[in-house]
Design a protein around this nucleic acid. Structure first.
Lengths: 213, 213
DNA sequence: TTGACTTTCAAATGAGCATTTGAAATATTA
DNA sequence: TAATATTTCAAATGCTCATTTGAAAGTCAA
């Protein structure tokens, strides 16, 4: 069975590719560098994956699976817990997931959003949208049956933004070793608490303004 | 005076460059395309600006000046207005600024953050940081003198994120003609109102928890 | 108009890179 | 072990650009 050794090499290529794509983006990553880091010959990529593009897609999927496994969407909070706790679970998991420097998928996705190569569009849609549905449902529950769809929608956007944007910026700042930004968010759990508190207060305010003020 | 005609051409190049850099990013934008759109010869870029890199920096600065002129940071709310109103002014201006499809600077900045070329780092720092100081000061005022620096900091991050992230995503969705996303935020002012309400509620909640609960 | 500029142009030049190739090395199977 | 299939390799190959070049047009001042 040749697969065992061959698979090990593919694994190494996937890992190296994830790193390089995260650092440089699809266009600026070179096959040569990926192969060098994986200790392989330049032609390994084409041999094992067919093309740089195919490797890109594979490597993102690979990273995504890993990161979801490490941080389940619900944050380990069961469905029977009160809604506030479930929100805390989801947001904390999301924040931790982005903060974890081993996770490449979120970062690659960010670049992909900023300048789509088109290569991940399909993969991302099928993977990411179901995740947001869960938060949407939870927000709807917290807002109560009176709330309009638009209110639910706006709240969900606000809440996700409070998690995603700061954490992505944080990682960027770290990467660029920006001395102007002195470790903005040092305590991940503290920040997650802040976001949950802020979010719940916001939801309450919108809720009490009635269905479209 | 040759400058008059020469300046007109430079202006055209700057505009075309802004468009192309916004659509493709620095790396994928080609000098050939920029010149074609500006109705100029390929060597025009090097003749007028020295290099593609220099054009990139110039064109960002140019876009930034334009967009700040169109949307002053304070949103036209004077310093004597109550803090809540000044916050509304700042956030509304920021949201409108990003939403305006004539503004390229924010979008280019987004790509630059996701994958820094290093070319804008200095320009952006000097331009963007002073802007955030204003929001920071306002949030500090709203939180009251009891609030810790960390609370001020976290709140400012949350609020800016609620403005920036959704609007950037919105423009991305529009650009990619994403049929999955049906015009998420149709009413800019309505969304701005939502954000202000949400933000003020969050600030209140943090304020009433005391200086670090 | 003439002579000194500035600006435009089409055609090189040359660098960077993904991908191909065909031979060599290595593993698998019988 | 010999025949066959898989995997690696160094060296092409060929493409896409940014930038250069030197000549041709334009422009201006006298």
């Amino acid at each position: 069975m040749a697969t065992t050794k061959s698979d090990a090499k593919k694994e190494k290529l996937l890992a190296a590719a994830g790193d390089v794509f995260m650092e440089k983006g699809f266009r600026d990553a070179t096959v040569a560098e990926i192969c060098a880091r994986a200790g392989a010959n330049v032609s390994a990529v084409n041999y094992h994956f067919g093309s740089k593009e195919a490797l890109y897609q594979e490597s993102w999927r690979h990273s995504f699976q890993q990161s979801l496994q490490a941080y389940p969407v619900d944050g380990g909070i069961g469905e029977t817990a009160p809604a506030e706790e479930r929100l805390r679970g989801q947001l904390t998991a999301l924040i931790q997931r982005i903060a974890d420097e081993n996770n490449k998928d979120f970062f690659i996705a960010q670049m992909e959003l900023a300048k789509p190569s088109g290569l991940l569009q399909e993969v991302m849609r099928t993977e990411l949208i179901p995740m947001r549905q869960q938060t949407l449902a939870l927000v709807r529950e917290l807002l109560g049956p009176e709330a309009s769809e638009q209110q639910v929608h706006y709240c969900e956007i606000s809440i996700i933004s409070m998690c995603v944007h700061p954490m992505v910026m944080q990682r960027i700042a770290k990467r660029t070793r920006d001395k102007g930004m002195p470790a903005m968010i040092d305590d991940i759990n503290g920040f997650a608490d802040h976001v949950v508190k802020f979010a719940l207060a916001g939801i309450d305010a919108i809720r009490s303004e009635g269905s479209k003020a």
